[in-house]
């Protein structure tokens, strides 16, 4: 194996991949959230449809789509590899164990939380992303151009109670995933310093709660007020 392959198949190497891809996915969440705030604009969905048309057709965004896919693939791949290794490191467990006395629930259940998020992601992509690629959406005229009416799809989906519930539950899972993941990424990258670590931890909490509240507010807004 080359030094490069050795580095990134070691336990620390894989964790470094987890942290870099994790922080990259956090940056995606911010962009996705800010863009989706167009849903709140009271213009019958014109602003949101223009935005989603731009995201679907801008060449830079199209390239970044593949970078984003790679981010997810590496994050999930290494998560599976590490989880398998970690399970194999203790084949006989304790008859009596009190992990709640020394660690947080979310930090011990990142795999479970991540799986909930992955299931959500698949449903989310199937419902909103896939139709934009397969032409399964109604068209709408905006500024003299016929574009996909993704807004209608969103508005209709968020009228279904179980769909809204799925979104809210998934965002709670994402919040717990981020509460541990955000600050943990810095620790894995070796960025632990008494001057900055308290601020990183606070920022991690604020980030997790605000981002997930922001995403959860969209289905709730459509379900309750539209």
């Amino acid at each position: 194996m080359s030094w490069f392959a050795k580095t990134f198949s070691s336990t620390i190497g894989r964790k470094i991949v987890m942290s870099i891809t994790g922080l990259f996915l956090c940056s995606f969440l911010v962009i996705h959230l800010i863009g989706n705030f167009q849903l709140f604009k009271d213009d019958g969905g014109a602003a949101f449809n223009v935005y989603s048309h731009f995201m679907g057709h801008n060449p830079v965004i199209r390239v970044l789509e593949f970078v984003l896919l790679a981010g997810f693939v590496f994050h999930i791949w290494d998560a599976v590899a590490l989880t398998r290794r970690n399970k194999a490191a203790r084949s006989v467990g304790y008859a009596m164990n009190r992990p709640q006395d020394n660690s947080n629930w979310s930090s011990r259940n990142m795999g479970l939380l991540g799986t909930v998020i992955l299931v959500f992601l698949i449903i989310h992509l199937y419902n909103f992303f896939l139709p934009t690629k397969t032409g399964g959406l109604d068209k709408v005229m905006v500024d003299g151009m016929m574009i996909d009416n993704l807004y209608i799809r969103v508005a209709e989906s968020f009228k279904i109670w179980w769909y809204v519930a799925l979104y809210v539950i998934s965002m709670i899972a994402l919040a717990y995933h981020l509460v541990h993941g955000f600050q943990s990424a810095f620790q894995t990258l070796g960025l632990n310093h008494k001057k900055y670590t308290p601020a990183i931890k606070t920022l991690g909490y604020v980030f997790s709660v605000l981002v997930c509240l922001g995403f959860a507010s969209m289905p709730l807004y459509f379900f309750l007020f539209k």
Partner: peptide, 17 residues
């Protein structure tokens, strides 16, 4: 670190236990 991995210990999840 190489020896630690050879011995079969798990990876760090930063849980702090």
């Amino acid at each position: 670190v190489a020896q630690m991995d050879i011995e079969g210990f798990g990876a760090c999840s930063n849980i702090g236990a």
